[in-house]
């Protein structure tokens, strides 16, 4: 049982939640995640990145987008209520060292998991350039937090409602062209990570992507999270979640992410989800 200590909406469908989890708070490192299950019997187990942790208070923070039944169920938990199961910290921590200049590229909800990594990279003495993107201004999250860490912050929106009107790959390419990147870290929708990898590849800039496959146990037991990396099958939950983006087969990963699409649509008719999100705003 883990108590919800605090909850706030970062945008219309993005929730920031603080949970009591002293053991996880004291062990976790940047890049690791948890598995949450709202109740034991029938709920799904879903993976979410640990966005922040406070060891003294024994709390961890997660930031998630409401995209389906399980994220909605979690969002509906009120402060003071509890989620039944919380397992973590899972996955290998991000490899942090002084690389020189690190470009952190986050898209959509991917900015949340990117934040602790950017922070750790900064603490290790790197110059950190952060590029964050969203479809439109209202969907942008953690701008202030990122600004306070980054030596340079570039904002992109698809519709130009804020920052530059472009995809995140455009400024990434410019930086690479100037020879200004020693390492890139990208987290976001699979398609975005794929194109970030394609952008840095010609420049030989080492690029890490943090993958968000479907998971069940998160301990290496089911193989549901498997991806192809450099022609080898890897389990994201134990071998990852970060991999060399130049070796990941993103096309196969995108296919597999849609495995349960028909069932998910059944579980959550889009209009039902929207109505439930409206409820949460009050």
């Amino acid at each position: 049982m883990s108590k919800v200590l605090d909850k706030k909406m970062l945008s219309r469908d993005v929730v920031q939640m603080k949970l009591l989890a002293p053991e996880i708070a004291s062990e976790r490192q940047a890049g690791q995640f948890i598995i949450v299950q709202v109740d034991s019997d029938f709920s799904e187990r879903i993976p979410l990145t640990i966005a922040d942790a406070d060891e003294k208070a024994g709390s961890i923070t997660i930031i998630f987008q409401i995209v389906g039944k399980s994220t909605l169920k979690l969002a509906q938990k009120k402060t003071g209520e509890s989620v039944e199961n919380l397992l973590g910290p899972l996955g290998k921590p991000t490899h942090i060292e002084k690389f020189g200049t690190v470009v952190c590229v986050g898209g959509g909800i991917g900015v949340a998991p990117l934040h602790p990594i950017a922070q750790a990279m900064k603490n290790a003495g790197n110059r950190v350039i952060t590029i964050i993107g969203a479809r439109t201004k209202d969907l942008l999250i953690l701008e202030d937090e990122m600004r306070s860490i980054a030596d340079e912050l570039i904002i992109c929106t698809d519709d130009g409602s804020y920052g530059r009107k472009c995809l995140v790959t455009e400024p990434l390419k410019e930086i690479c062209e100037k020879g200004g990147a020693d390492l890139a870290v990208t987290i976001g929708p699979a398609i975005m990570m794929k194109f970030c990898a394609e952008t840095t590849r010609p420049f030989g800039v080492k690029t890490y992507a943090s993958l968000n496959t479907i998971m069940v146990d998160g301990t290496g037991m089911c193989g549901g999270c498997r991806v192809t990396v450099g022609n080898e099958t890897k389990f994201v939950c134990v071998d990852g979640p970060e991999f060399d983006a130049h070796l990941v087969d993103f096309d196969n990963m995108m296919l597999r992410l849609r495995s349960y699409k028909p069932q998910e649509q059944d579980a959550n008719h889009a209009c039902h989800l929207q109505a439930a999100i409206d409820q949460l705003q009050r």
């Binding site: 069940v216 146990d217 037991m221 089911c222 193989g223 549901g224 498997r226 991806v227 192809t228 099958t233 196969n252 296919l255 597999r256 849609r258 495995s259």
Partner: peptide, 13 residues
Amino acid sequence: NLVGVSSANEFLT
């Protein structure tokens, strides 16, 4: 790794 292939562990879990 096609959609519809799973391990018995995943299926049974």
